[in-house]
Design a protein around this nucleic acid. Sequence first.
DNA 1: AAGCATTCCAACCGCTAGAAC
DNA 2: AGTTCTAGCGGTTGGAATGCT
Length: 271
Amino acid sequence: MASSSSTQPSSGATIPAPLDDDPQRQEEEAETELRRGPWTVDEDLTLVNYIADNGEGRWNSLARCAGLKRTGKSCRLRWLNYLRPDVKRGNFTADDQLLILDLHSRWGNKWSKIAQHLPGRTDNEIKNYWRTRVQKHAKQLNCDANSNKFKDAMKYLWMPRLADRCLQQPSTTRDHVLSGHSMGYMGSSGLVTSSSDSFASDSYDGGFYANANMGEIANSGDWMQEQNQVFWPELNQSCQPQDSELSGWVQGFSGGLAENFWSLEDIWKMQ
DNA sequence: AAGCATTCCAACCGCTAGAAC
DNA sequence: AGTTCTAGCGGTTGGAATGCT
């Protein structure tokens, strides 16, 4: 349940609460020193049991009443990001990754909003995923993860492969989140579609390909060709854009290069 | 085996918005 | 209307785990 870092017997420091000039208050607050750092198993149990009996909310008083020497904020975070029974742990599936890329492209760093569409995943986890995996690749390409160029690389190279992968395996996320919504990804084996109305009320209007700006992408060919990297050596014709200039761009980008740092294998290693 | 570098993620921080008083 | 409290968000950090030399 708890990670190694969180189960360690408290490397967390204990910090004094802020003091003022009132000696009585100083004494009171000295008695209620606040702990910080990794949570111990005992603390976790205390929090879980208290919430099971009394429910969540009113985090500051909850922390006091439960006898936890933590801030309400810390308790809330621990519960939401780790202890909640429905928190899904472990690596992101291809479905999850696909959805994150897609939703981030339209909403930006709205982690909690994105997390709402990934059952069991927390905003913190998605944020970490983005920063550690996605931004790393953007850095390797010498561009910003929020730049149009990087987004185009995702649209035409990463996402089609993930979409393919989604089709090849049973998926709970896709079933739950995408079911019923009209969404299309151009996988290497053709257009991948599913349908859902789960985004209808939240301005989610479909997959990447509905909004692709082909002209702009075609114009970025030079930049792409300059990158001595390859995404998908096995990229086949069917997932390439119809635009002939852009097709050349993808070919140039994916062919004849030695290092494959963003291969399918890479993505699956991440999982 | 040891030391160093990198990756990953839990936890913290500062800030904001809305509710309660 | 102003103040305080609470919840929530996104950015950042610390340190354990892992990989590399």
